[in-house]
Amino acid sequence: MDDTNNKRREFVRNGVKAALLGSVATGALQALKSCSDAGAAASASANSETVELMTTDGHLIEVPVTALSETENLKGDDYRVREGFPNRKFVMVVDLARCKNAKKCISSCNKSHFITGENAWIKVYKMQESQETAPYWQPTMCMHCDKPACVKVCPVDATFKRRDGLVLIDNERCIGCRFCMAACPYSTRVFNWEEPRQGETTEIHMHLEHTESSPDYAGMPSLKGTVDKCDFCPHMIDKNELPHCVTACPNGVFFFGDAYEDTVTNGDESFRLSELLEERAGYRLLEQLGTEPSVYYLPPSNRLVDFQEGLENYEPYKSVDLSEE
């Protein structure tokens, strides 16, 4: 990861952490639209700096950074892990026109979720429907379906659907029958076939973060004989931050947001979800199955990057390097 990128991400993190007071306070996540060179400036002096924020009704406003304060964690006192964050409905938009198989999403996800096996939760597929159609790169993660096949078949309620849209796994409950893996049409679930080689890392992390293991933070720790998958990073949402893949992607492929507020952001740009989907003809994978995914895709038209570039990185038989970053 090069330096400027790092700085930008840091800024984005800090920026997103900040939120407006008063009426727009809930707009925290889809907070800001920063120009690309804002990173350097932000780290210099914050006093005279302003940021643009989008209010819940879609207006952009400019606010001095000093007027921003960190919000509390999203989790209230009555937060229940099987209920989720009240009045939210998380969605993701993946812009295929921007993806060039950089795989930073995978390495960042692997690192943050302490993934130690060959089974990364995010995959970037090299897709080509037929000889005549154009190839493209397609990142996939759990679609957090609104009609999740995995939840339907789980015999012990280990996999559950929350009101905020997330589909999570209680790996203290999972009996390892793998029915959910057979049921998921997106092949997104992975199994811990052996003792995860996480060592002490997860324990240290839990200690430092003062957290306990919970379905809200998949992979911390992973347990032998249970399933894992993308969790949409509720532990980041809680801190008013974006999921790891969103911030890690150098090309801004992933947009994360809230369907109720109709906004999504990749940290650099924010859009109204409905407008984005309409303008760019968004769609969902395997819509015909009726799973109603929470992840939308924007077709790879008017590409910002060349498909060929991704081939350098293409390793069909290998999960991403675990040691990266």
Partner: peptide
């Protein structure tokens, strides 16, 4: 075949009727 055979009793304590596995049990 179970990854966690020691949790077998969850099928009885936490079983959910919409899963075909429970029907099978």
């Amino acid at each position: 075949d179970m990854g966690r055979p020691e949790r077998l009793f969850f099928l009885f304590t936490h079983g959910r009727l919409q899963s075909p596995i429970i029907w099978d049990v």
